[in-house]
Design a protein around this nucleic acid. Structure first.
Lengths: 194, 194, 194, 194
DNA sequence: TATGAATGAGGTTTCATTCAT
DNA sequence: AATGAATGAAACCTCATTCAT
């Protein structure tokens, strides 16, 4: 949708992210967004049908970015465990960088009762990890008696939640390294135990 | 906070829950809440300093209710595993019953950048599970090399997330029973593996 | 509804009439009305549910005024013919004075597809003339083989239309006196012919 | 104004009538009209200088249609009374068929303070009836002491008003036949009485 | 002639909050 | 403590119109 990052659509999207990250969805006004995007008020409505229409678009943009980074990082990983390590690492990094948007996306999708879009937006991510897990099963790195689909979703959520608790919820009783290790071990044990 | 559930404070709180559950925080108006509560517009501000002040109050009310139920249910459990089973079961039930408020609470706390309150609201719940886990460690039901505090938080989040994915996100590829079992196994393996 | 002409309701109504008379309904803004009425923007919506809600209120106010004048004028008329004369006279006067509101009322009621309210607003006027006509029939001033209800409505419309053609449509080929006489004769003949 | 009913001008005009009939002038948007007409937004302004410019065009189109029908219907009427009968009949039919446009035309012309155009649009109709009345006077069907011009206008207005009260205002206390007869008698008496 | 993306002024309405009673 | 009429800021969105192509 946004190949050239300079068309009107992208200009609006980027301005939205900036503004909304800072003030939250409800406190942000369309007029502030268009001002930052350098377009007219009415133009906004040529690309988005309403203010709340921004949220899935932002979510999608963020998830795409995350998945790309994830894939690049994981490229050439020797084992599933280094993949898992990279996913944890990357999720923590992204969460730190994009706290505000993540919160927005969570709450925004929730507010509009459009939770269904959640699954839609996340699906490529979930499916990518499913494939990785399946490969690990075949390589006998992890045990075969797991529900791959469910596990993929659970792991992603588990990691994201831990990262959010750390960066957003302010739960920093332990060092970041310890935190991530604990997480790695928790997941690993679940996957290798009979 | 209030003992008698029929004073003005509780009347407002309950009306809020009803109204906000249905329409979301932003679409709900104080005027609708006071109408449902049967009090005057101005009276609202004698008990809450602003509309957004409602959210932590609602969150607290919900969490208190949940924790009470949890404790009652777990009373007299023979092992940590039956406690865990009960927690899973109860979380799924509560999530189903209170989807709307849960979504509200998540998003509401997020919207107002008041995530700090999150930790505060959840603390009693977290701490209760910490105690249970510690007891399990002592009874050698689970291995001692875990970070109790971190694990307590992670388990609660894991269970809640699974329940939310099931009831709110509409992720129902498997039957509820299979879903819960998978979850139980996932956690159990993490706790008993060396 | 508007006993004391100084309550908020009347202040709004009068300001509306002034503003809308001058600019028409669509070109008038609520903000201009409230400014003229000396009240806050929001206060408007405590008394009228929307801008278009003004029209029936204005119509009603005008009709009430007209009917009052009509009754006062006709008081003690010796014959139906002097009543008719007075009605014609008064209608022309009122039309001249209130051209703008009359046009507004016509179009306003039309625009909102609320023509049903028309009949409602006019009813007291129609019914008053019905009574006058009936009395004239009893006094054998006019012939009995007419449909009183239909005739009452028709006469009122006939007179109003003539006045509007004269003052609003700019149809002034004849002097006002000739115009009214023509009208009087036209109606009279219809009522006395066998 | 346009002969071929399939050029852009007519396409716009017809689309306008459809759209505006249904939603009223103010609630209709140029964008909806051009969509229905199958032309581009900008093209509209090649044929009409503004939205409100549509109203006289629509009025004119309607009146032309009405007058044509009237003339055709009346062709070869033996007496003025059968002409009058036909006019009444036809007016009621047209009013029934085109209620919405008629209301629009009334209100539209009123709203824009362009009542002057009214006379202009109606003139051919008025003049046609003037001729018919004059012929009737010559044939001594009706009395000569009337103001032909005034009478023509009054009769047309009288009939239209009755029809509007019947079809638009919902005044249906009597059957249509009775209604029309009453009207016929009312006018006839006025024309034949000394 | 025809297009349709872009404009941006401007209106209606909502609603949290206040304050005199 | 309780009321509820009044406030007025501010937001969303629409839409007639323009103009570069």
């Amino acid at each position: 949708m946004q190949d050239r990052p300079d068309d009107k659509y992208s200009r609006i999207l980027n301005a939205s992210i900036e503004v909304i990250s800072e003030k939250g969805l409800e406190k942000s006004s369309v007029s502030e967004i268009v001002k930052k995007a350098g377009i007219a008020q009415g133009t906004f409505y040529l690309y988005f049908s309403s203010k709340s229409d921004l949220v899935p678009a932002i979510a999608n943009s963020l998830l795409t970015k995350i998945l790309d980074r994830m894939k690049r990082k994981v490229q050439g990983a020797e084992s599933f465990w280094s993949t898992l390590d990279a996913v944890i690492d990357e999720t923590f990094k992204v969460t730190d960088e994009h706290k505000d948007i993540i919160v927005l996306v969570y709450s925004g999708l929730a507010v509009n009762h459009s939770l269904e879009k959640w699954e839609e937006v996340y699906r490529p991510y979930y499916e990518w990890l499913e494939v990785e897990i399946s490969k690990a099963v075949q390589k006998e790195e992890i045990l075969p008696d797991i529900n791959v689909k469910w596990t993929s979703r659970t792991i992603i959520n588990l990691i994201e939640n831990a990262a959010e608790r750390y960066y957003i919820g302010g739960e920093r009783d332990e060092s970041l390294t310890v935190y991530k290790e604990e997480l790695f071990k928790f997941i690993r044990k679940s996957l290798i135990t009979d």
